[in-house]
C-alpha cells in the first residue's frame, strides 16, 4: 500500500474519532446491557437467542448508519470545504485519495465492530454464564456484517463521487435495503417473463447480495455455515468492492472540481 493511501486513511480514521463517531459504542453498550439484564430476568431458554439476534442486528444497523453517513461525506465534504484542493495539489493521485478514504472508514468500522463484538460476547457470557463452542459462529456472523459495511462504504463513496450528499445517502440506503431483500428479488426473477424478467435478472446481479451475508438467525440457533461459503462470500464481497471503487475512481478522475 502506498504510504499516501495509508496517511489519508489514518487521517480519515482520526477525523471519525475526533468527530466522536465512536460514541455510538456507548449507545450500543447501553442497549446491550439493558437487553441482557431484561432478558436474563424474564425469558427462559431463549436468552442466548435474543442476545445474539438483538446484538448482531444492532451491530449491523449501527455500522451501516455510520458507513452511509460518513461515507457520503468522505469526498463531498472535502470538496465543499476545499480541503481536497490542498491534497490533490500534492503528489497524491485521485485514485489514491479514494482508496485512502475507503481504507480509513473501513478501518473505523472494523474497530467499531470489534468493540461491539466484545460487547456481544460479554452479554452472552452474562446471560448464559458460559460460552459454547458454537458461539464462535457469532464471530463469523460479525465478519459477514463487516463485509456488508465495506460494501456499503464503497457504495456511499461511489455515489458521493458524483452526486450530492443527500442523494448519495438515499441511493446507498436504497441499495442496502434492496440488497437485504435480495432473496425476494430472486423469487421475482423466477415468476416474471419478458422484459421484466431481464430487468430483474440485471438487478439481482447489480445489487449487493446482503442476504448471503446475513447469517444472524442461523447463528442465533447455534447453526454454522460451511467454510466454503465463508471463503466465497469473502471473495464476492471483495470483488464487488473492487467493482464499485473502480467505478468511483473512473468517475472521480473525470470530475472537474469546480
Amino acid at each position: 500500500m502506498s504510504s499516501r493511501i495509508f496517511h489519508i486513511a489514518a487521517n480519515t480514521f482520526r477525523e471519525a474519532v475526533r468527530d466522536r463517531v465512536l460514541y455510538n459504542l456507548i449507545a450500543f453498550a447501553l442497549l446491550l446491557t439493558g437487553a441482557a439484564i431484561l432478558v436474563g430476568q424474564i425469558s427462559i431458554q431463549i436468552e442466548r437467542l435474543v442476545v445474539i439476534n438483538l446484538g448482531l442486528t444492532a451491530v449491523a444497523l449501527f455500522g451501516v448508519v455510520i458507513a452511509i453517513f460518513i461515507g457520503i461525506g468522505l469526498v463531498s465534504k472535502e470538496i465543499e470545504k476545499r480541503t481536497l484542493y490542498t491534497v490533490l495539489s500534492r503528489p497524491v493521485a485521485r485514485w489514491e485519495f479514494i482508496a485512502g478514504k475507503f481504507v480509513g472508514l473501513s478501518g473505523t468500522l472494523v474497530v467499531n465492530a470489534s468493540c461491539m463484538a466484545v460487547g456481544v460476547f460479554a452479554a452472552l457470557l452474562y446471560v448464559s454464564r458460559q460460552l459454547h463452542g458454537s458461539d464462535a459462529w457469532v464471530l463469523v456472523a460479525i465478519y459477514f456484517i463487516v463485509l456488508q459495511f465495506l460494501i456499503t462504504t464503497a457504495l456511499a463513496l461511489f455515489f458521493s463521487s458524483f452526486s450530492s450528499p443527500l442523494l448519495s445517502a438515499v441511493f446507498t440506503f436504497c441499495l442496502f435495503v434492496a440488497g437485504s431483500f435480495a432473496e425476494d428479488l430472486r423469487g421475482f426473477v423466477g415468476l416474471s417473463h419478458g422484459l421484466q424478467h431481464w430487468m430483474a435478472v440485471i438487478a439481482v446481479y447489480a445489487i449487493p447480495n446482503f442476504s448471503a451475508l446475513n447469517i444472524i438467525n442461523q447463528v442465533a440457533h447455534g447453526n454454522g455455515v460451511s467454510g466454503q461459503l465463508v471463503f466465497w462470500n469473502t471473495a464476492y464481497a471483495l470483488v464487488y468492492i473492487v467493482a464499485v471503487l473502480s467505478g468511483a475512481i473512473v468517475i472521480f478522475e473525470y470530475r472537474n472540481l469546480k
Binding site: Y205, A212, W232, Y236, V239, A243
Partner: peptide
C-alpha cells in the same frame, strides 16, 4: 470485477 461478481454470486 463486474464479471467476477456475477460469477461469484452464482457460486455462492
Amino acid at each position: 470485477s463486474c464479471a467476477g461478481s456475477v460469477f461469484l454470486l452464482r457460486l455462492v
